[in-house]
Amino acid sequence: MWQMDTTDKAIINRLQGGLPVCERPYQVMAEQFGIGEDELISRLENLLTQKVLTRFGPMFQIERMGGAFSLAAMKIPEADFERVTAMVNTLPEVAHNYRREHAFNMWFVLATEKPEGIIQAIARIESQTGYPVYNMPKEKEFFVGARFTA
């Protein structure tokens, strides 16, 4: 089985911080890890294949573009969970969706280009699934800084 080595860990830890905008960004970063540009690229490809990284690229803040994000929750009976998951996940506005241990057992993030898109997506989910959606948009952000050390 493939295992991460110390170089992979350094890449994961350092590259959460940011890739520069220049002609050869991977070459610039590769120097910091003491490896070649080719090796950094193939390690990143491998980390994505192994699903250690879910994505590599720009992280957008849709609110800054006039769009909106919201967190929404639903209480779905166990027997109906799979059907509702499939319906909710079909919507392109659903950016991620987590199952959680609670009466509110489905939690998803909606991202839409326009603020009214949130309400439209919620209305669609409610009518398709037959269950209410609890909309919990953030009222204030105190901190966002997910950093996971490998």
Binding site: L15, Q16, G17, L19, L47, V52, R55, P58, A146
Partner: peptide
């Protein structure tokens, strides 16, 4: 201007 928060790796925290 913050439209892009950063360009980088998004780790799967479970895998880590």
């Amino acid at each position: 201007n913050g439209v892009i928060r950063r360009i980088g790796a998004v780790p799967n925290h479970y895998a880590l």
